[in-house]
Design a binder for these strands. Structure first.
Length: 246
DNA sequence: GCGACAG
DNA sequence: ATCTTGTCGC
């Protein structure tokens, strides 16, 4: 797959103002409806190519890894290492990690039906998190899967979620989305029987996927851990590559 | 001014 | 994200 909208490619040398302006344009270009060739049932049945992306870091560069799964089978994987341009800034993650992510995805020969990324999609101040940014650049279906909440307000307590349950995340005053809009879901993939420890995933649409389908796909992606299999595998792969380069 | 903040 | 051993628990 490749970048089809060069104008949106993340550039770490831009000013903060320019980055934020670009994010507003990206949010405008993002499609929050289902425009993809598979649904959650296809994913669950192993009839879809689901890619997972994750990063690992060395002192001055980032390693991005992508693993493409078809059910429980890994059908492809690639990685790319690029120099780090800017430090981590909440809300501007795509400008730090977007370049290596796109580089890794551009090396993929097969086009996944949907790409799952570690980070937010529409759960973002300007509705343009990493998953949205990458999705719009590639014009491909993407979903953001974050381990913690960047912004937005859960419509109900997330501390009593049982395995498989979800709670809507609504836009609030610090976001560009209209207050009350459901921008994502807190989703509990795994939960231990008697544990009081809760750590749901925060799922939000990136591009060409509705918020409902986004969480359904993550629920159908499989895996034995907190993260859906494709991302979990990408996480491991990124660590392997990092170890080789260290 | 204060608080909150993906990876 | 990353620095890191053992350790509590399923």
């Amino acid at each position: 797959m490749g970048v089809v909208r060069e104008r949106f490619r993340p550039d770490g040398s831009l000013s903060t103002e320019a980055m934020e302006a670009l994010q507003r344009d990206i949010a405008e270009a993002a499609v929050l409806e289902d425009v993809l060739e598979v649904d959650a049932t296809d994913v669950r049945d192993g009839d879809a190519l689901v890619a997972g992306v994750d990063q690992a870091f060395l002192e001055d560069r980032a390693v991005s890894a992508v693993v493409v799964c078809e059910g429980e089978t890994v059908v492809a994987r690639e990685h790319a290492t690029t120099p780090l341009s800017i430090p981590y800034v909440p809300g501007l993650l795509a400008f730090r990690e977007g370049e290596p992510v796109l580089a890794a995805l551009e090396r993929l020969d097969v086009a996944p039906d949907v790409v799952l990324l570690d980070g937010s999609g529409r759960i973002h101040y300007r509705e343009a998190g990493l998953a949205t940014h990458v999705g719009v650049c590639l014009d491909a279906p993407t979903v953001g899967v974050a381990k913690s909440l960047l912004c937005g307000t859960p419509s109900a307590p997330i501390d009593a979620l049982q395995e498989g349950e979800r709670v809507p995340i609504e836009a609030d005053g610090e976001m560009t989305a209209p207050d009350g809009d459901v921008v994502g879901y807190a989703y509990q993939r795994r939960q231990y029987p008697d544990s009081t420890t809760v750590n749901p995933l925060y799922v939000s649409p990136g591009h060409r996927v509705s918020v409902e389908t986004a969480v359904e796909i993550v629920a159908a992606a499989g895996g034995e851990y907190k993260l859906p299999r494709p991302i979990r595998l990408a996480d491991r792969y990124a660590d392997e590559v990092k170890a080789e380069q260290a």
